[in-house]
């Protein structure tokens, strides 16, 4: 039996008295696209932040079964260590290095998998120069993967919105993740861009990277997800294959509200 790549057990995160997450149990299977959906304010990003170490979980466990590095409980690790362990993420409000060229953004992403330090940089040792070449080559390949090769010299801040999202994904992929966590990657995109993005996400999964996706727009994720978790008010209210979740009365209620449409899905 295949074990989940990422598993959270009774993950809780409180802010003072506010229980942003209560007893979240996620199981993300390797090679899948798993989605975490829910209305705005349901606490989805908090789950991401607790998993990726932006802040430590208040209680509960986060277990990662890395195919090469073994199984670890990563709850409370620093974000950079979690990233180096193979969990990369993007942000809902894009966090690019705005004043760096596109290619350097991706090169920063290659940081955890490269080694050369101060002295080899100062003396330009053969090893350093070789590594820089490898970094450059890999960065170009990642840009090609997301379709930004043409823009490599531009500043990140000058990219179109959709391209900024792509660049953030390329940067996250460059860290060499086994699991990619995407926080509302389609936010602010038009329908055409969204379709292309979904295609890209599939491509990432096919390239061997498991994807955990946050979306608040349910329709969007139903097509590409293998498995869906639904959150509301800090708790998981349903999970299952998309078809099952779509017809779950609790999900419908969370999205439409008991009385009908006033929540919408804005």
């Amino acid at each position: 039996m295949v074990e989940p790549l990422l598993e959270t057990r009774k993950l809780c995160r409180y802010f003072g008295g506010v229980k942003a997450n209560r007893d979240i149990d996620l199981r993300v299977m390797p090679g899948s696209i798993t989605s975490l959906i829910g209305p705005n304010g349901a606490g989805k990003t908090t789950v991401f932040n607790a998993i990726t170490g932006i802040f430590a979980p208040t209680s509960g466990e986060v277990i990662v079964r890395h195919p090469r590095l073994g199984t670890r409980s990563i709850g409370g690790w620093r974000p950079d260590r979690i990233c180096a362990f193979g969990l990369a993420r993007t942000f809902q409000n894009i966090h690019l290095f705005a004043d760096l060229p596109v290619i350097d953004n991706v090169k920063v992403g290659l940081h955890p998998r490269t080694r050369r330090g101060v002295l080899s940089a100062i003396f330009r040792t053969p090893g350093f120069l070789r590594e820089e070449d490898e970094i450059h080559a890999a960065a170009l390949h990642y840009l090609a993967f997301v379709g930004l090769l043409e823009a490599e010299h531009d500043l990140a801040t000058n990219l179109a919105y959709g391209d900024q999202r792509k660049l953030e994904i390329a940067r996250a992929l460059a860290t060499g993740p086994v699991l990619l966590l995407l926080d509302e990657p389609a936010a602010g995109m038009n329908p055409t861009e969204t379709l292309a993005l979904m295609e890209l996400i599939r491509k990432i999964r096919d390239a061997g990277v498991t994807v955990l996706l946050i979306e608040h727009d349910m329709k969007l994720v139903m097509n590409i997800s293998d498995y869906v978790y639904v959150m509301d008010h800090g708790e998981l209210i349903a999970h299952g294959p998309p078809v099952a979740v779509r017809s779950d009365p609790r999900v419908i209620e969370a999205y439409l509200g008991p009385g009908g449409g006033e929540h919408g899905h804005g």
Binding site: I54, D80, H95, V108
Partner: peptide
């Protein structure tokens, strides 16, 4: 440029 993103890049 962005400490949060730097951490997220390992």
């Amino acid at each position: 440029l962005d400490e949060t993103a730097a951490r997220a890049c390992g």
